[in-house]
Design a protein around this nucleic acid. Structure first.
Length: 209
DNA sequence: AATCTGATATGCT
DNA sequence: GCATATCAGATTT
């Protein structure tokens, strides 16, 4: 008998989304992702959260995007690949995770900004060093730490374990507004390309406009 | 509101 | 090479 695994045996498993799900226009995909589950299967157990906030970054014309003017570096390279791949990058001390979208050679991506904790709460608390449920995943750097996501996943696929996205529930209502932290991005900072589930308490910032 | 943290990219001397 | 800015977060005033 294996005591260590008995706990995982009965755990509900999620089915990864098919690849075609990611093949829709970036602004639509950013909204379709709301309500979906982000799952990380780790040796210590499964950790999952529902996506409640996203931001779209669109290719060469978006001054706030890393790929503005088709800037192609070792970091942005993955944005030019097919939709559904994993784009991670490091911002200061934090790892942020994005879903690559758009056609091949169209460097677009969607930043996952916040989750609502669903599975593996105790692991999240351990990873984050706090017991405050509200603070576990209500920010792009917080959720990667809670789920144990690192740069190791750069270039991977959201359609296969151990890090993948599964179908969730459709949100009742979606709100939109300007993106966060891009004050130095000219007109692009006015684009209403941030989406969140209306009224959800785990969004990274509250609705002001 | 200020300050520290510090991977990565860019621009300057 | 070094300085500076960045799709944050935590801690301190």
């Amino acid at each position: 008998m294996d005591i260590n695994r008995s706990e995982n045996k009965l755990e509900e498993s999620f089915i990864p989304l098919e690849n075609h799900f990611f093949h829709q226009p970036t602004l639509e995909l950013a909204q379709s992702l709301l309500g979906c589950m982000l799952i990380h299967e780790t040796p210590e157990g499964n950790i999952a959260g529902m996506i409640v906030e996203t931001e779209a970054y669109k290719g060469p014309m978006d001054q706030a995007a890393h790929s503005y003017q088709n800037r192609r570096t070792k970091r942005t390279e993955i944005m030019f690949s097919e939709a559904g791949r994993i784009y991670t990058y490091v911002m200061h001390t934090h790892c942020l995770i994005n879903v690559v979208s758009g056609d091949l050679e169209a460097p677009e991506a969607i930043l996952i900004r916040a989750l609502e904790p669903v599975r593996g709460l105790s692991l999240m608390q351990k990873n984050r060093g706090t017991h405050d449920i509200r603070q576990l995943t209500n920010g792009p750097g917080k959720l990667t730490k809670a789920l144990g996501i690192t740069m190791d996943y750069y270039g991977g696929y959201f359609t296969v374990p151990p890090l993948y996205i599964a179908k969730g529930s459709s949100p009742e209502s979606i709100s939109k507004g300007t993106r966060i932290g891009i004050d130095n991005s000219g007109e692009a900072k006015e684009y209403p390309w941030r989406f969140w589930i209306t009224g959800n308490p785990f969004v990274s910032r509250n609705t002001k406009k």
